[in-house]
Design a protein around this nucleic acid. Structure first.
Length: 289
DNA sequence: CGTATTTGACCTCG
DNA sequence: CGAGGTCAAATACG
């Protein structure tokens, strides 16, 4: 049956959300940085920060069960419908409002999060110029995955506010495989081919639209949802840890960047402790195990 | 021709 | 009754 989120699961979610926030802040710091040119370091560091953000989103999506999403019920399980409309029009309405909470994240450049989504609706929201887009997992039909998300672009800038509902029971990170155009879209944001060049030498064994490479040993992970789901969470966490560690290494090994590190630590005091959060990421695997 | 997206209608909730 | 969420026919696309 549905996996009930454990207390460590909630803790992990909280940490992820906090950490994501911090990584986002770190990213905007990189936007504003006026450091002397430091070879390719800014690109790589920036890339890593982006990857952390990306991993956070995926981890959040993977962990976002227990929000009530799994409890959606069909109002009319069988085609017992009112007389005045075709039964197909009334048989599948879902009851979703009222108490269902989602995990909300913000993405700066792209609404991609490593999962495969199919759009099923779009709605103009009162008081908002940008429409809200509705997606469900592409594997909904194949494996009954009930994960959904809502995406809304903020008017001021290109920040996507993404709210996740339900959890992925398909166990697949489907967009991880062969989405070159999306990767390009992402690479452009780094202003160089750094990330692409990084692929071959990368020790990371997963891949996404942010330029990492995924090696999947199991071609169809949808077959055993529960185990694969946990495996996936573990993979995302491991990826996150690896990248966070590299950010810390990068930031502390060059002097201009240790200067920046100092700035981060200053900021840390006043805000939500970005470096502490990254350290905390590194411990997240213990929470997930 | 199969699959994904668009879009208008329908449904539920507050 | 209006706003938001979802469905599914129509349409676009490869």
């Amino acid at each position: 049956m549905k996996r009930v989120m454990s207390a460590p699961g909630f803790a992990a979610l909280e940490i992820l959300a906090k950490g994501r926030e911090s990584a986002e802040a770190l990213n905007s710091m990189l936007d504003q940085q006026q450091l002397p040119e430091v070879s390719t370091m800014p690109h790589e560091l920036r890339g890593l920060v982006e990857q952390i953000l990306h991993c956070c989103d995926r981890a959040l999506a993977a962990l976002s069960g227990g929000t009530g999403g799994g409890t959606c019920k069909k109002r009319n399980p069988e085609h017992g419908s009112p007389v005045d409309l075709p039964c197909t029009m009334r048989s599948k309405r879902l009851r979703v409002r009222g108490g269902e909470r989602g995990i909300q994240v913000q993405k700066k450049w792209t609404m991609e999060d490593g999962f495969a989504w199919r759009k099923y609706g779009q709605k103009n929201i009162h008081g908002s110029k940008q429409p809200r887009l509705y997606f469900h997992c592409s594997y909904k039909d194949d494996s009954g995955c009930m994960a959904r998300r809502q995406v809304q672009q903020s008017e001021a800038n290109s920040v996507y506010v993404i709210t996740y509902f339900g959890e992925h029971t398909c166990g697949v990170d489907a967009t991880a495989i062969g989405h070159d155009e999306k990767m390009e879209q992402f690479v452009i944001n780094f202003g160089s081919g750094t990330m692409v060049a990084q692929q071959s030498g990368s020790p990371w064994s997963s891949c996404d639209d942010d330029g990492l490479v995924v090696n999947r040993e199991t071609p169809d992970l949808c077959n055993s949802p529960k185990d694969e789901e946990e495996l996936q969470e573990g993979m995302v966490a491991a990826e996150l840890i690896e990248q966070s560690t590299r950010v810390l290494e990068l930031m502390s090994m060059s002097s201009p960047w240790s200067e920046h590190l100092g700035r981060c630590q200053e900021w840390e005091v006043g805000h939500s402790k970005s470096l502490f959060d990254i350290d905390e990421f590194i411990n997240i695997d213990s929470l997930l195990q």
